[in-house]
Each structure stands twice: as structure tokens, then as C-alpha cells.
């Protein structure tokens, strides 16, 4: 018996078997079973749609921006970058603080670059307050945040991180979920 194999026929056969086997393999490998408790935990994190991240422009607060972005990436959470300008009670809130504002804008700009790398929606805000912690907690409530992610660093030597006292205030007052990312003193 002489056989003629057409090139097109061979290609169709190859296509047929590849598509068939690939389809069946994909079908037979669904994701693993999830218990109700695990599902509840997963969904409660996926429900976090608005994350506030206070920053002061230091490396550990920028790291907290990255952490917040990773927490919110799957559900495309909106990231709210906030820089609190603490104004001493000896001065009016509206006092010109051009150098501090420039520093705040620069800090928010760096944080913005991190958020943009994750393609997440974002907003940024510079806000003046007497006490940062109280103000962050109040803003979070007013803006209906689901979570606050705050980076702090252990106090070491002469350098004092202003967010440490802020962290205490937020933990006491905030009505939403709070994640404190505390780095050891380097």
C-alpha cells in the first residue's frame, strides 16, 4: 500500500492533538479546595480596597508604600499617600512652611513612583495637623479607609522617627485595620 501524507493533513493532526491534550490537561487541574475559614481570611484581605499609607520620605516609610501596594495589588486597591505636616501649637496652622512643603512633595513624589510601578489607582495628600497620629486616624475615618499601613523604625542613637509616637496614636484611635511595619534599627 502506497501512502501519501499531505503536509496540511499532518499539520491539522498535530494541531488537533495539541489542542485536545492541552485543553484536557488544563481542565483536569483546577485550583485547590479552600476551607471556609481560609476562604473567609482570603476574602477579607481581598475586600481591602482603600489603603492609606503615611510617609515622611524616609526609607522605611517608602518600604511601607511598597508593602501596601503588594497587599492591594490583586484586588486593585486604591492607595492614598499622605504626608502630615505637623505644625507646633505655638504657630497658626496656616503658617508658611515652604521648605517643609517642598520636602513633603518630594517624599510623595518618590512614593508615587512606587505606586505607579504597580499600576494601582492612587491619590496623594499633604495635610497640616497638630498631632500626626490623631490626624491620620481621623482622615482614615472620614475617607472610609479599609486599612492603614504604617512603616516605623526602632529609635536608635540621636535619630528619632516621628512616626513612632504616631503609631501609638493611630493604634489607639483608628477605626479601620492597621498594619504597623516595624523595622529594626539598622
Amino acid at each position: 500500500m502506497s501512502l501519501e501524507i499531505s503536509l496540511l493533513g499532518a499539520l491539522i493532526s498535530l494541531f488537533f492533538i495539541l489542542v485536545l491534550s492541552g485543553t484536557l490537561w488544563w481542565m483536569l487541574h483546577p485550583h485547590a479546595f479552600v476551607t471556609q475559614a481560609a476562604a473567609k481570611a482570603r476574602q477579607s484581605v481581598l475586600a481591602v480596597k482603600k489603603i492609606m499609607v503615611p510617609t515622611v520620605g524616609l526609607p522605611h516609610t517608602e518600604r511601607s508604600v511598597e508593602l501596601a501596594c503588594r497587599l492591594g495589588r490583586k484586588q486593585m486597591a486604591e492607595i492614598y499617600l499622605i504626608y502630615i505636616l505637623e505644625v507646633p501649637r505655638t504657630m497658626p496652622l496656616g503658617v508658611p512652611l515652604s521648605d517643609a512643603e517642598k520636602e513633603a512633595e518630594a517624599a510623595l513624589e518618590r512614593a508615587t513612583q512606587i505606586v505607579l510601578l504597580h499600576n494601582l489607582p492612587m491619590q496623594k495628600l499633604i495635610h497640616r495637623a497638630r498631632v500626626a497620629g490623631d490626624d491620620i486616624a481621623k482622615l482614615a475615618k472620614d475617607m472610609e479607609m479599609d486599612m492603614i499601613v504604617l512603616g516605623i523604625q526602632e529609635e536608635a542613637g540621636s535619630h528619632i522617627d516621628p512616626l513612632n509616637k504616631t503609631a501609638n496614636a493611630i493604634l489607639k484611635i483608628a477605626s479601620c485595620e492597621v498594619i504597623i511595619d516595624k523595622l529594626p534599627s539598622s
Binding site: L3, G9, S13, I17
Partner: peptide, 15 residues
């Protein structure tokens, strides 16, 4: 059925 299709296209089919 897959055998019929594969053998058919390979050895008997004329486009």
C-alpha cells in the same frame, strides 16, 4: 474518535 481523526488526516485526507 481521536485515532480516526489522526489516522484520517495523516494517511487518507486529500485537501
Amino acid at each position: 474518535e481521536t485515532i480516526v481523526v489522526l489516522f484520517g488526516f495523516l494517511f487518507a485526507w486529500k485537501p
